[in-house]
Nucleic acid binder design. Structure first.
Length: 296
DNA sequence: AAGTTGCTCAACCGCATAGGG
DNA sequence: CCCCTATGCGGTTGAGCAACT
């Protein structure tokens, strides 16, 4: 049985947004008498609020030394720097930024800085680069091997030899993202038979990977041959044509990631040079997807 | 014009902690 | 010490608004 919340003793206490009249009462009282006891303050000030609510309103909004307006670039840089050493210690971070509140900084971080870092390819938790796209692609390509040709299941030692860094990269990526809705467009692909099983396998794959039980799963999985397909890449992101240009023959992400938009985790500047495996349909599919993210 | 979606940020909730008796 | 209470803190929520369909 935990301690009851400080305001639970009276359900009559007002909650929600403060009115200008309440603000005035609180400001007047504190400027005249200070705030020696937040618990006693509401009664004395004539407010039908709990002390906690008064304290928050004063600290985050009414305090005269509070700084209003957008954060400057210097402030933002300082916040990023402090966060890299202190973590989510918003109060300690706020103490280094005069006039800024912990709540304000926390909101600023969650709505602006965090996204900015992600787009720049930096993990906002660790302040380290997120998995490199090539690494991720390579990892997924390796992982896809057992699903391409079942006889390659004998290659499980190869899978086991994928170095820890690659696996950690993928694990990090998967853990940082919502589970994607898996493709439903495969009926039109040359690998129609892969449709439902493929979705289930991929979904299970992601789930297993999330539960860090990936290796166990790889060793258990068994699939029907996919003789018509060159790779899982083609079935997911487009058929291979004549082996020249492996451009997806459909809109690969029409039905993908609809409910669970992935955040922009990786560097995506349009002018960034494409890598050597650009012609891979898998890559093309991801490029399309990340391009679509840029437009969000 | 109406409905939907996404974003922002003020405010709340519940746990942790300090400190007085 | 131990208990109790007030305050502080970080995570989360949801109202209000803007942009989009």
């Amino acid at each position: 049985m935990g301690r009851p919340p400080c305001c639970s003793e009276s359900s009559d206490l007002k909650k929600g947004p403060w009115t200008p009249e309440e603000d005035e009462l609180l400001s007047d009282y504190i400027q005249k008498h200070g705030h020696e006891s937040w618990r006693a303050l509401p009664n004395r000030a004539g407010l039908n609020r709990c002390g906690k609510s008064c304290r928050l309103r004063w600290i985050n909004y009414l305090r005269p030394d509070i700084k209003r307006g957008n954060f400057s670039q210097d402030e933002e840089n300082l916040i990023v720097h402090l966060h890299s050493t202190l973590g989510n210690k918003w109060s300690r971070i706020a103490s280094q930024l005069p006039g800024r509140t912990d709540n304000e900084i926390k909101n600023f971080w969650n709505t602006h800085v965090r996204k900015k870092l992600l787009k720049a390819g930096i993990d906002p938790k660790t302040h380290k680069p997120v998995p490199n796209f090539d690494f991720l692609l390579e990892t997924i390509s390796q992982i896809s091997l057992p699903f391409k040709v079942p006889t390659l299941m004998t290659m499980s030692p190869l899978i086991k030899n994928i170095n820890d860094q690659l696996l950690n990269n993928l694990l990090q990526f998967v853990n940082m993202t919502p589970l994607p809705k898996l493709p439903t467009f495969l009926d039109s692909s040359p690998c129609g038979s892969f449709n439902q099983p493929g979705e289930l396998v991929m979904e299970e794959m992601v789930n297993q990977y999330r539960s860090q039980d990936w290796m166990e799963y790889v060793n258990k999985v068994d699939l029907e041959p996919r003789s018509e397909c060159d790779s899982i890449d083609a079935s997911l992101f487009g058929s291979y044509g004549d082996g020249i240009e492996m451009i997806p023959d459909h809109e690969p992400f029409d039905n993908l990631f609809i409910d669970n938009q992935l955040p922009g985790l990786l560097p995506m500047s349009p002018e960034e040079p494409k890598n050597s495996i650009e012609s891979n349909a898998f890559q093309a599919g991801f490029d399309d997807y990340y391009d679509s993210l840029l437009k969000i």
